[in-house]
C-alpha cells in the first residue's frame, strides 16, 4: 500500500526500551529454567484435569456429615487459636511497633526493631511453631503463640507505618504543652492512629483463621489436624465436608470482621469531622 509514502514525515522513532526488553527476557529465561527445575512428570500433567474432577466427585458428591460435630469442635479450637494469637500478637506488636516509628523512638531503637520485624516476617508461622513446640509441646497453646510471634512481624510494620502516616499536629501540641514522650504517644498519636490499628488487628485475626488451620497440619490441634488425618485415611467424603466447613467458617468470619472494620473506620471518620467542625 501507499501507507509508508503518505506517513507524516517527522514521525519520531519509537524508543527501543532495552532495559524493559532485557527484563522480559530475564523473566522468560528464569521461567524456563524454573520449569526445568520442577522435574514434572508430563504424564501426570495430562491426567491432572480428569484426576481433579474424579476427586472432586468423591469429596463433594456425597459429603459425610456424620463427623460434623467433631469438625465444629475442632473449628472452634482453630478459631480460638487464631483469636488468642491475634490478641497477644497485636498487643506485643503495638508495644514494639510504636517505638519503631519515626518521630517516636531514637534511631538506635528503631533500626534493630525494624530488622527484627523483617526477620520475623521472613519466617513462616509453621517454622515458628516447629521451633516453639520443642518447649511447649504439641498443644493449641503452641499454635496461638506461633501466630502471636508471627503476627508481630507484619503487624508491628503496619503499626509504625500507620503512626508515621498520622498527622503530627496533635503530637506536637502535647509536646509543646510540656508532655514527655509517653504522654505524646498516649494523647497525641494514639487517638488518631488507634482506629486504623484496631482495624488492622481484626484483619490480623482474619489471616490467623487461615494460618491456624495450617498449623493443625503439624499437629497442634484444630481443624487442620482433622483434615490431615482424614486425607491420609483417604476418607474423601469427610474431607469434602471439612473443606465445606472451612470455607463457610472463613467466609463468615471475613464478612463479620469486615463489617466491624468498616464500622470502626467510619466511626473514626465522623470523629475527625467532629473535630474539624
Amino acid at each position: 500500500m501507499t501507507a509508508l509514502l503518505s506517513s507524516p514525515t517527522r514521525v519520531p522513532a519509537k524508543p527501543r526500551r532495552l532495559a524493559l526488553r532485557a527484563a522480559w527476557t530475564l523473566v522468560g529465561v528464569l521461567f524456563i529454567a524454573s520449569f526445568w527445575g520442577l522435574d514434572l512428570e508430563w504424564a501426570k500433567l495430562w491426567e491432572l484435569p480428569s484426576d481433579v474432577w474424579h476427586y472432586f466427585g468423591l469429596m463433594f458428591s456425597d459429603p459425610d456429615w456424620s463427623k460434623l460435630p467433631e469438625a465444629l469442635f475442632q473449628t472452634w479450637r482453630s478459631v480460638s487459636m487464631a483469636w488468642v494469637g491475634a490478641l497477644v500478637g497485636v498487643v506485643l506488636a503495638t508495644l514494639l511497633g510504636i517505638p519503631a516509628a519515626e518521630g517516636v523512638g531514637p534511631i538506635w531503637v528503631r533500626l534493630p526493631l525494624r530488622w527484627m520485624f523483617a526477620v520475623i516476617r521472613a519466617v513462616p508461622e509453621v517454622i515458628i511453631a516447629i521451633i516453639l513446640l520443642t518447649v511447649t509441646g504439641l498443644t493449641p497453646f503452641t499454635g496461638a503463640l506461633a501466630l502471636a510471634i508471627g503476627g508481630i512481624g507484619t503487624h508491628a510494620k503496619w503499626t509504625y507505618e500507620t503512626i508515621e502516616a498520622t498527622p503530627t499536629g496533635t503530637g506536637e501540641a502535647v509536646k509543646a504543652a510540656g508532655g514527655n514522650r509517653m504522654q505524646m504517644v498516649r494523647w497525641g498519636l494514639w487517638p488518631s492512629a488507634s482506629p486504623e490499628l484496631m482495624s488492622l488487628g481484626l484483619y490480623r485475626f482474619e489471616i490467623n483463621v487461615r494460618t491456624s488451620a495450617i498449623l493443625g497440619l503439624i499437629g497442634v490441634g484444630g481443624i487442620g489436624d482433622m483434615l490431615t488425618a482424614y486425607t491420609q485415611f483417604r476418607e474423601w467424603g469427610v474431607v469434602g465436608m471439612l473443606i465445606i466447613v472451612v470455607i463457610v467458617v472463613t467466609m463468615t468470619i471475613d464478612a463479620i470482621s469486615g463489617r466491624i472494620r468498616r464500622r470502626i473506620m467510619e466511626g473514626a471518620k465522623s470523629r475527625d469531622l467532629d473535630r474539624i467542625v
Binding site: 481433579v52 476427586y55 488451620a213 487442620g224 473443606i243 472451612v246 470455607i247 472463613t250
Partner: peptide, 15 residues
C-alpha cells in the same frame, strides 16, 4: 478461604 497448606495436603493425596 482455603489455606495454602490445606490445598497442598489434599493435592498431594490426589496427584
Amino acid at each position: 478461604a482455603i489455606p495454602d497448606l490445606v490445598y497442598a495436603t489434599i493435592l498431594v493425596a490426589m496427584v
